Amino acid sequence: NQASVVANQLIPINVALTLVMMRSEVVTPVGIPAEDIPRLVSMQVNRAVPLGTTLMPDMVKGYA
């Protein structure tokens, strides 16, 4: 099963993503693939993302 990107903490809106904010985990439904974590660094989410939430492509500005 493919690992997805999961919030490692509350990720506020309009804050640049850092490695420490994200972890990889096998979850259902599948979200952004874990291998895209380096690409996500410095991008921003378009809504607050609670701890443990799977990041979906539509949550990250400029990802999709």
Rank of each mutant, 00 (worst) to 15 (best):
I32W: 03
P12Y: 04
S42R: 09
D58A: 09
N1K: 06
A64G: 14
P57W: 06
A16N: 13
A3Q: 13
I37M: 14
I32V: 08
T53R: 08
T54Y: 03
D36L: 09
I37V: 06
P12N: 14
I32G: 02
E35N: 11
M43T: 05
V26T: 12
L55H: 02
P50E: 13
R39N: 14
R23C: 05
T28M: 10
T28S: 13
L51G: 09
Q9I: 09
R23A: 10
Y63C: 04
V49M: 07
R39Y: 11
I11Y: 02
A3T: 09
T18E: 13
Q2Y: 14
K61N: 13
P12V: 04
A16D: 12
P57G: 07
T18V: 05
L10A: 12
N1R: 04
L40T: 00
P38G: 11
Q2S: 14
I11R: 01
V26D: 15
Q9S: 10
V49R: 02
V45N: 01
P50I: 04
R47E: 10
P38V: 11
S24A: 14
G52K: 04
T28K: 05
L51W: 13
G52V: 03
M59E: 02
M59Q: 05
P12L: 05
G52C: 04
T54N: 01
G52W: 04
V45G: 01
V49T: 05
A7T: 09
T18Y: 03
V6M: 04
L17D: 02
L17A: 00
V20N: 15
S4N: 00
G31A: 03
K61W: 08
L19D: 09
M59R: 03
L17S: 00
N14P: 00
R39T: 10
L40I: 14
N14D: 15
L17H: 00
E25K: 06
Y63K: 04
M22Y: 02
A64H: 14
L40H: 00
A34V: 12
S24Y: 07
V30P: 13
P29R: 04
I32Y: 02
A64K: 15
V15R: 11
N46C: 15
P29W: 03
S4L: 01
Q9D: 10
V41L: 14
R39S: 07
P50N: 09
M21C: 04
I37Q: 05
Q9T: 14
R23W: 03
S4P: 01
V20E: 13
V41W: 03
G31N: 01
D58G: 08
I13Y: 15
I32L: 05
T53S: 09
A3R: 06
V30M: 14
R23P: 03
M59H: 11
M22K: 00
A7R: 01
M59I: 05
V6I: 15
R23G: 07
D36V: 08
S24W: 08
V20A: 14
A7Y: 02
S4D: 01
Q9R: 11
M21V: 03
P50G: 08
V30S: 10
A7K: 02
I37C: 04
V26S: 13
S42F: 09
I11G: 01
L40F: 01
G62D: 15
V6H: 00
N8K: 07
V15L: 06
G31D: 01
Q44P: 13
V26N: 15
Q9Y: 08
S24R: 07
S42Q: 12
D58H: 12
M22R: 00
A16T: 09
P38A: 11
M21I: 03
S42W: 09
V27M: 07
A3V: 08
G31P: 00
V45K: 00
T18N: 06
K61G: 07
Y63E: 04
I13S: 12
V5F: 02
L40E: 00
P12W: 04
M21L: 04
I32A: 01
V30C: 11
D58K: 09
N46W: 08
T54G: 02
V60P: 01
I13F: 07
P29F: 03
I37P: 01
G31W: 02
L17I: 11
A48C: 14
S4C: 06
M21H: 10
A3L: 12
K61F: 08
S24G: 12
A7L: 03
V6G: 01
T53F: 08
A16C: 13
V5W: 02
M59C: 05
A7F: 02
A16W: 09
P57S: 07
P33G: 06
L10S: 13
M56G: 05
V41P: 00
Q2I: 13
V5Y: 00
R23H: 05
P57R: 07
A34K: 06
G62R: 05
P29Q: 04
V6T: 06
V30E: 15
M56R: 11
P33I: 11
M43N: 05
A64T: 14
V27S: 05
M59L: 06
V5R: 02
T18M: 07
V20L: 11
D36A: 08
M43L: 13
I13L: 12
R47Q: 14
P12S: 14
V26Q: 12
T54C: 05
L19K: 12
T53C: 08
Q9V: 15
P29Y: 03
G62C: 15
A48W: 10
V49G: 01
A3F: 07
M43R: 11
I11H: 00
M21G: 02
G52Q: 03
A16M: 15
V5P: 01
A16R: 10
V5L: 03
L51C: 13
T18A: 10
V20P: 15
